[in-house]
Amino acid sequence: MKTKILLAEDDPDFGMILKQYLELEDFEVSWFQNPEDISQLLLTDFPFQMGILDVMMPNIDGFSLAKMILKEKSNFPLLFLTAKNQKIDRLTGLKIGADDYIAKPCDPEELVLRIKNILKRTVPAATESIIKIGQYSLDKKKLLLTHPLGNVRLTIKEQELIIYFLQHNHSAITRDNILDNLWETNDYFTGRSLDVFISRLRKYFSNDPEIKIQSLRGIGFEIDFPTQ
């Protein structure tokens, strides 16, 4: 499954270059020239694993956009693009909650390296074989969910759903987004299948009350997986 990156860059030439390069590196990139379009997404579906925000944009600057995103998605990884490379920009970004910054014009290879380092720190499901989820441990290689009170052997689809939830942790996810990404189809039968899988996961994680897969009526689910 490709990592989905939100790119906010109003410069059409630079934005297109970044999008094409990142897609060559096997990322899935949604490029927005108008940051106001992103603010609307926060009210509905937000299927991204990290964001790259240009600091200097019209209407809504990168810092203001970051504050809006982090208000709704508190652990969302962010990298800032700045043309000025001034100390005040760096400090402002870090205070807001940015994971990194890079000055424009940037070396695409360095940008990719920074992105991968951020994802390694913030999206453990993408890189680690064993992942701690509250009182549980998920061994991806063995398809095994372990807990002091007992272990569960997972199916491939069950593990894919857990990893997808980890990648969208502390976020609301629509049913359509889950079905489109994991089942690659969206009809009555796959919808019922998703309900069965959700019931199974709730049962598997029932020994830890801090782990929550909450249904949002008419929307989908809100995920809260405590991780280390």
Results as ranks from 00 to 15, higher is better:
T174S: 11
T3K: 06
N151F: 07
N207L: 08
L79H: 12
H147V: 07
L79A: 11
L143F: 04
F165P: 01
Q20Y: 10
S39F: 12
A103E: 08
F205P: 00
Y204K: 04
L179A: 09
L143K: 06
M68Y: 12
L94A: 13
L70I: 09
L138V: 04
L81F: 08
G150L: 07
E23Q: 08
L43M: 12
M57A: 06
L149D: 05
C106L: 11
L166H: 05
I219T: 15
D10S: 08
D180I: 05
S74Y: 09
Q33F: 00
I38N: 02
R175G: 10
F225M: 12
L41I: 07
D99A: 07
N177I: 10
F225V: 12
L149F: 11
K120P: 10
A103G: 14
G97Q: 05
E184F: 06
G62W: 00
L119E: 00
D26Y: 07
D10E: 12
M57D: 00
I173A: 08
K116D: 11
I118A: 00
T127Y: 13
E36S: 13
L144P: 00
P35K: 01
L182I: 13
K73I: 08
M57I: 03
N207M: 12
T174D: 10
F225S: 08
I69N: 05
K120W: 05
G150V: 11
P105N: 09
M56F: 13
N85I: 10
D89W: 05
P209A: 10
S64M: 07
S193D: 15
R90P: 04
G191T: 14
D99L: 05
E9P: 01
E23M: 02
M50N: 06
L138S: 03
L201E: 13
T174C: 05
C106I: 06
P47S: 06
E158K: 01
L166Q: 14
R90D: 11
D208H: 09
S39I: 14
I5W: 03
G15E: 01
D107G: 07
E25F: 01
L119T: 01
G220P: 01
I156Y: 12
M50T: 07
P77E: 01
D54H: 04
F189P: 02
G15H: 00
R202D: 06
M68H: 14
T185K: 13
D100W: 00
M16H: 13
